[in-house]
Simulated assay, not measured.
Amino acid sequence: MSEDVGGYDAARIEVLEPREAIRKRPGMYVGSTGERGVYQMVFDVVGRAVNEVLAGRASAVDVTLTPDGGVRVADDGPGVPVEAAGHAGGPSLEELLTHLPTGAGAGGRHAAVVGMFIVGPCVTNALSSRLTAEVRREGMRWVQEYVRGVAVTAPVAVGPAAGSGTSIAFRPDPDVFETVECSFDVLAERLREVALLNRGLSVSLTDERPAVGPRSVRFHFPGGVRDLVASLDARSGAPLHADVVGFECEEPRMEGTVEVALRWCDAREERVRTYANSRPTPEGGTHAVGFREGMAAAVNAYARERRLLTAADPDLTADRIGEGLTAVVSVKLDHPEFEGATRGRLAGASVRSCVAEAVRQHLGAWLDEQPERAEAVVGRVLRSARRD
C-alpha cells in the first residue's frame, strides 16, 4: 500500500450538496445521460403528480411537451406548500426542488413508480437548464424560477389564482444530456400503462411542438388491468371466452394488494406481464411464480373434480395451461423487495404464496361458476396435452 493511500483520512472526504452531487454524477440518479435519463427526469415529476391523484388530493395530471423543447407537468391538487406564505402540511416547494427524498420511495403501495425508480423533482431541477414552478393555493398564485438547480428568486406571489394545483415546467440541460428531445409515443406508451394499472387515474399528454398543430391524448381506464388484457388480446387470436377474468384483493401477509386479469385466446403464445407498484418487472419474480402456481392449481383441481383427468394422469403443467393466455399480474406493496440493482425481478417469499393462493381461489371460483367457459378453456388444454 502506498503512503498516499495509507494517509487517507476523514479530511479527504468530499461532501457535496444534493445539486452538486447530482450534476457531477447524473447517471447515478437518472440512469443515463442519453434518452433514458431524459425520460427519467420527466417521470420523476410526473410521478409526484400521479401520486397526488392516487392519494385523493387531485383528480387529473396534464403533461405537455412545449414548443421550446421543454416539458410541463401540472396537477389540480391543493398545491405544494410555500414556505414564504406560511403554508404547512408537507414538504415546501423549496424542499421538493432542492432536497433528495429519504428512503426507497415514500408511499408504499399507494405510490406509483412511473420511472425506473423514485428520486423526485429535486433531481429534475438539478439537471434542467431552467425550471419554473407555479403553485396555486389558497387563492394565490406563487412562482419560483431555478437555473441548473439554483434558485433565481424566492417564491413570489404574482396575483390571485383560480382553483388550485402545482405546475412544474423544465428544460433538460443540453450540457448534461446527449439529447434533450422527448418522443411523444414513448411518453404516451408509459402514461397509458400507468393509467391502466391505476384504475380511475386520468392523465393527458399534449404535444405542442409539431408544425402541423398540437396533438393530445387522455388516458382513463375504469376497468384497470382488465382493460390492459383486453387491449393486448386485440392483437391475438379469437378469445375462448368473452369476459376477462379479474380480481383485486388485500393480502395482509405481504402487506399489499394483488390485482390479476386474464383471458385465454385461440393462440399458442403466452403473454404475461407483471408489475410491482406500477413498475414493470420484465424478469418476473415471486409474483410471476405465484401466479403460475395458482393458475395450475385451479385448473388441475377443476379437471380432477370433474374427472377430466384420471388418477393415473399427471397434472397439467403451467406451461401447457398458459398456451394462448394473456394475463396481467400487478402487486402493490408497502415494502417491495427486489433482486439485483436493476429492480427488474421481484423478491419476497410471502408474495409468492399470497399471489398463488389468491389466483387459485378466484380462478377456481370462476371455473366453477362458468361451466361452459371453463369447458372451452380446460377442454382445449386437455386436447393439446393429449395431442402432443
Results as ranks from 00 to 15, higher is better:
residue 8 Y to Q: 06
residue 10 A to E: 10
residue 13 I to H: 11
residue 20 E to C: 05
residue 21 A to C: 05
residue 23 R to P: 13
residue 25 R to S: 15
residue 26 P to G: 14
residue 27 G to L: 05
residue 29 Y to K: 07
residue 29 Y to H: 14
residue 35 E to Q: 14
residue 37 G to S: 14
residue 43 F to A: 01
residue 44 D to I: 06
residue 44 D to G: 04
residue 47 G to F: 01
residue 49 A to F: 13
residue 49 A to E: 11
residue 53 V to Q: 02
residue 54 L to W: 07
residue 56 G to Q: 03
residue 60 A to Y: 09
residue 61 V to H: 01
residue 64 T to P: 11
residue 69 G to W: 08
residue 70 G to S: 07
residue 71 V to M: 02
residue 72 R to P: 04
residue 73 V to C: 04
residue 74 A to G: 11
residue 76 D to H: 02
residue 83 E to I: 10
residue 83 E to V: 12
residue 85 A to G: 07
residue 86 G to E: 10
residue 88 A to M: 07
residue 91 P to D: 05
residue 95 E to W: 04
residue 106 A to R: 09
residue 106 A to C: 05
residue 109 R to C: 02
residue 113 V to F: 00
residue 113 V to E: 01
residue 117 F to V: 06
residue 119 V to K: 11
residue 120 G to H: 10
residue 124 T to S: 15
residue 126 A to C: 12
residue 127 L to V: 04
residue 128 S to V: 03
residue 129 S to T: 11
residue 136 R to I: 08
residue 139 G to T: 13
residue 143 V to A: 00
residue 152 V to G: 08
residue 152 V to E: 05
residue 155 P to F: 00
residue 162 A to Y: 00
residue 164 S to C: 11
residue 164 S to E: 09
residue 165 G to M: 03
residue 165 G to L: 07
residue 171 R to N: 13
residue 172 P to A: 13
residue 173 D to F: 07
residue 176 V to M: 12
residue 181 E to G: 01
residue 182 C to K: 02
residue 185 D to V: 08
residue 185 D to T: 12
residue 192 R to T: 07
residue 193 E to L: 10
residue 193 E to W: 06
residue 194 V to I: 12
residue 195 A to R: 02
residue 198 N to W: 00
residue 204 S to H: 07
residue 205 L to T: 02
residue 208 E to S: 13
residue 220 H to R: 14
residue 224 G to K: 13
residue 232 L to C: 09
residue 233 D to F: 00
residue 236 S to T: 15
residue 239 P to I: 07
residue 239 P to G: 10
residue 241 H to K: 04
residue 242 A to P: 00
residue 244 V to H: 01
residue 246 G to R: 03
residue 248 E to P: 05
residue 250 E to Y: 02
residue 250 E to L: 03
residue 251 E to C: 04
residue 252 P to C: 03
residue 254 M to P: 00
residue 257 T to I: 05
residue 265 C to H: 15
residue 270 E to R: 15
residue 281 T to W: 05
residue 281 T to Q: 05
residue 283 E to T: 11
residue 286 T to S: 09
residue 291 F to A: 03
residue 298 A to G: 04
residue 299 V to R: 15
residue 300 N to C: 15
residue 305 E to S: 12
residue 306 R to T: 15
residue 309 L to W: 11
residue 311 A to C: 09
residue 312 A to C: 11
residue 313 D to N: 10
residue 314 P to V: 04
residue 315 D to P: 13
residue 317 T to M: 04
residue 320 R to K: 10
residue 321 I to V: 12
residue 324 G to V: 08
residue 328 V to W: 01
residue 329 V to E: 01
residue 331 V to Y: 01
residue 334 D to Y: 00
residue 334 D to R: 05
residue 336 P to C: 09
residue 337 E to F: 02
residue 345 R to N: 11
residue 346 L to D: 11
residue 348 G to D: 04
residue 349 A to Y: 02
residue 353 S to V: 14
residue 361 Q to L: 06
residue 367 L to Q: 14
residue 367 L to Y: 07
residue 370 Q to E: 15
residue 371 P to T: 11
residue 373 R to M: 03
residue 377 V to E: 10
residue 383 R to M: 09
residue 385 A to C: 12
